Simulated assay, not measured.
Amino acid sequence: MTNEQHQLLMYIDQISFALDDTVLFLDTHPCDTEALAYYQELKEERKMAMEKYASKFGPLQNDNVKCGCSWSWVETPWPWELEGRDC
């Protein structure tokens, strides 16, 4: 796994955690406009990060697959298959 790939995965993890935490807050504060705006911002950041990862290293989730003449979801190694590799 390259340093860039590792950094991008860590960033996606961090954004995903913040997004999940914001969803939990919104479950109990559904009319909080500041939290709703923060949720939208995080959602867009995560979407962009996921698209960047998919374009460089392959999709992390099946909804990031670019459908063409084959199902590309299975063409790249899974992130955990790359851990410990130097290439």
Rank of each mutant, 00 (worst) to 15 (best):
M1P: 03
Q5P: 00
H6E: 10
Q7F: 11
Q7M: 13
L8I: 15
I12C: 02
I12K: 03
D13K: 07
D13T: 08
Q14D: 13
S16K: 06
F17Y: 15
L19W: 05
D20K: 10
D20N: 14
T22S: 02
V23W: 01
V23N: 08
V23M: 06
F25K: 08
L26H: 08
D27F: 01
T28E: 05
C31D: 11
T33Y: 00
E34P: 00
L36T: 11
A37W: 06
A37Y: 06
Y38L: 14
Y39W: 12
Y39C: 06
Q40C: 09
Q40R: 14
L42M: 05
E45K: 00
E45A: 01
R46I: 06
R46E: 05
K47F: 12
M48L: 15
M48E: 15
M48Q: 15
M48T: 14
A49K: 00
M50K: 11
M50W: 04
M50T: 02
Y53G: 01
Y53R: 03
A54C: 07
S55N: 09
S55I: 05
K56M: 12
K56H: 15
F57Q: 01
F57S: 06
P59H: 04
P59G: 10
L60V: 07
L60Q: 02
Q61Y: 15
N62I: 10
N62F: 13
N64T: 10
N64G: 08
V65T: 02
V65C: 01
V65Q: 00
K66M: 07
G68C: 07
G68P: 00
S70I: 15
S70G: 04
S70H: 14
W71D: 13
S72P: 05
W73K: 09
W73D: 05
W73L: 12
W73C: 02
V74D: 07
E75Y: 03
E75A: 08
T76V: 11
P77W: 09
W78F: 13
P79V: 14
P79C: 09
W80L: 06
E81P: 01
E81D: 05
E81G: 04
L82K: 05
E83L: 12
E83H: 04
G84V: 04
R85L: 15
D86H: 11
C87V: 14
C87G: 09
C87P: 01
C87A: 06
